[in-house]
Design a protein around this nucleic acid. Structure first.
Lengths: 181, 181
DNA sequence: GTCTATACTCCGATAGAC
DNA sequence: GTCTATCGGAGTATAGAC
């Protein structure tokens, strides 16, 4: 049951954010009762913490898969950027950033902060490799470029959601790749 | 009073989103009473519509100022990207995109959709000018590049919020400019 | 571990007096 | 135009039985 509660909370945080997710909704989706939920977790923030930590870890792992995968540095960056993502669902971690109650709680906020900091650093590292391999213009600042690329991904979700069209996500990603190569 | 209600709602939508903004909070911030609010507006969605339309219009106008301002095409794009923004407050329009209740209501959603569609188109136009002037690589797709740049801005807010540091916003913007020029 | 009962507050709105 | 009263439901939890 503990597991079902965490997964249901992850889904709801993704779909509706922290303020928009009520204990009752979590119970209904997971099939757990009131008592069960408060037995496993102290309350909504505690449950949210478990859910957020898992989502943040997943974000890092998936980035790591592509950025440490096979192929040359620029190829790996391209694979990372082009990965299939559910554009119209938004980013499960990036979304939390817009939630004042999450950002106001240091415990809830830390996993989000760490996930982006680590991914930015990892991407910057691969960009540095790309420069060393002569695949990328030497004049570019790897850290700033990494920030710009990850920002483009996060913003691509925003534009796709605004347009109600996943094609806009892909367009933005291809635009970023066009600038990079 | 009508005016104060709209402005208070704009602020609250910006800070806390649609789900996180209650009629009571609007009344307290604006100084209006229950009766006053429901006299001027039919309810929360009606008031939110007025607030969202104004914020969306403002987004377009400010973009227009820079993109139609003085200077060469690439210079105008740079001015647009580099404009001083309250990074840690997020984008008042982009934020709404993460709000399922806003996106589910066609009336509330339209201003958001239009604002981004128009800004993307306008920026693509200036990028085309830049290509014509030889200031920008001819191989780039203006529409995709415009989407990528606006996405980078929107995502820069996300990264800055995650890091709790406005410097990250500027870093991402400079990274995008580095790729562009 | 899970269930039911209970509590208190806030949400979003309506009604009618002034 | 604004105020107060009132309302049914949802949010977030605690207590105690099973």
């Amino acid at each position: 049951m503990r597991e079902r509660l965490i997964e249901s909370t992850r889904e709801l945080l993704w779909e509706r954010g922290y303020v928009g997710t009520s204990p009752k909704a979590i119970q209904q989706r997971s099939g757990a009762g009131q008592g069960s939920m408060y037995h496993h977790f102290r309350g909504k923030p505690d449950l949210a913490l478990a859910a957020i930590e898992r989502s943040a870890a997943e974000l890092c792992e998936r980035a790591e898969q592509e950025l440490s995968g096979p192929g040359g540095p620029l190829e790996r960056v391209t694979a990372y950027l082009r990965r299939e993502r559910a554009a119209l669902r938004g980013c499960p971690v990036g979304r939390l950033t817009q939630d004042p109650d999450v950002m106001a709680d240091p415990a809830l906020r830390r996993p989000v902060e760490d996930a982006f900091a680590r991914t930015r650093a990892r991407l910057a590292g691969v960009l540095t490799e790309a420069q060393a391999a002569g695949e990328l213009r030497a004049g570019l600042d790897p850290a700033a470029t990494a920030a710009a690329l990850i920002a483009a991904l996060q913003g691509a979700y925003v534009l796709a959601l605004a347009a109600g069209d996943a094609g806009v996500y892909r367009q933005a990603v291809e635009g970023a790749l066009g600038l990079l190569t």
